[in-house]
Write a protein that binds this DNA or RNA. Structure first.
Lengths: 113, 113
DNA sequence: CGAGATACATCGCCTGTCAAGGTATCTTGC
DNA sequence: GCAAGATACCTTGACAGGCGATGTATCTCG
């Protein structure tokens, strides 16, 4: 399992990325994350729900209870226009951070040449 | 300036990467970081010195006072064999985390196709 | 002699993660 | 009928890393 500290700061963006496709709920989002990453990563439940809280407080998502006839009740989340804008910004930040980290980490790669 | 939360978890590795090339000290390391990143990133001093403490406690670096005849005194750091091993592991982790984050963030990119 | 750069260091706060614990519903096997 | 396990949500308290604020001492330049 990948160290969560390396992903820290991306949790909210990861959730927003999934909500771009369609409304979803906590458990499903986490299952999708596990599937996409070949079981290499998952959000802990406490992390997931605090992230939802944060996203809703920021106005990036809107929640509503599902109308399932059977099974456990589900709380669905829908991304808002502000959420889409935030997603775009955060992905841009990620691309920049990625470049910077790559540069900083590999600058010593030819040290013993 | 890049959001530090996106770099969180890489601070120690960034420092180790620089010490692969040659022994160095806090201020110089930070100057190099600013230079390499075109002023897009820097470590805050408090972050820098707590990282040194952590690295030394872990046995990844070893420190000694410089013998400057003039100017402020400098505390130099040298990377240890354990530090080199840790660096290699952490860079490998970074590469994996990078792939995973890329996948998770861009999965919704064709949402409105 | 004052301002600003160099250089190191600590304290206390903030934020995000998460182990642990809790609730409720449905399905499956015995 | 009922225990076990999956689905699904949520909260609390602790912890770790980052960092603003603050403090020290030295050197250089005008």
């Amino acid at each position: 399992m990948i160290d969560a500290d390396l992903i820290r700061g991306h949790t909210d963006t990861i959730i927003l990325a999934q909500l771009l496709l369609e409304d979803s709920y906590g458990y499903e989002i986490n299952k999708t994350i596990r599937f996409i990453t070949d079981e290499r990563y998952e959000l802990k439940e406490a992390t997931l729900y605090t992230a939802f809280k944060r996203l809703e407080d920021s106005g990036f998502v809107h929640s509503y209870w599902g109308s399932e006839e059977s099974g456990a009740r589900r709380k669905y989340y829908r991304i808002t226009p502000n959420g889409r804008a935030a997603y775009a910004e955060q992905v841009a930040s990620w691309k920049e951070a990625k470049d910077v980290i790559d540069k900083l980490l590999t600058m010593g790669e030819n040290a013993h040449a």
